[in-house]
Design a protein around this nucleic acid. Structure first.
Lengths: 72, 72
DNA sequence: ATGTGACTTCGAGTCCGTG
DNA sequence: GCACGGACTCGAAGTCACA
């Protein structure tokens, strides 16, 4: 399993758990709306600074974002 | 604590635990010698693909690399 | 509200070397 | 063996128009 895929799945899952649209999520994190879309579709290869901003904005641990997503 | 700092400390710690030089470590992971130096000195902002290559090369979990380093 | 292609700028990542 | 530097390429960051 690729880290990039874990990230995509975890973002989408957590974002929906919290009832956020991609736009609201992007605003929280401080990234562009379209960039958020691209992360969820595994089209980009983000740096750890971006990962960090997501973690801080959503109060997450690294495992929550990059670990294997719960299989559902 | 910044993710970039965790990474730097964890790489250096694990690399030394395994008795690898920076050069040997870089060769294992498949990155450049000088880039390995820069990661350990927190001078660069790697992508998650690089993180992944380090994890796979050294058989690590995300928490081992990006989590808070053991305080010793 | 989500997704895509295209664009510019700047830094990720490599390669040469030095002390 | 490690830190640091300059010069280079290409891809990530960040944005937009449009569907």
């Amino acid at each position: 399993m690729l880290l990039r895929n874990n990230l995509a799945a975890n973002i989408r899952r957590i974002r929906r758990e919290r009832g956020l649209s991609q736009e609201a999520f992007a605003a929280e994190v401080g990234i562009h709306r379209t960039y958020a879309t691209m992360l969820e579709s595994r089209k980009r290869n983000p740096t750890i600074d971006v990962i960090e901003r997501i973690m801080k904005a959503l109060n997450l641990e690294v495992g929550d974002l990059l670990g294997p997503p719960p299989n559902r």
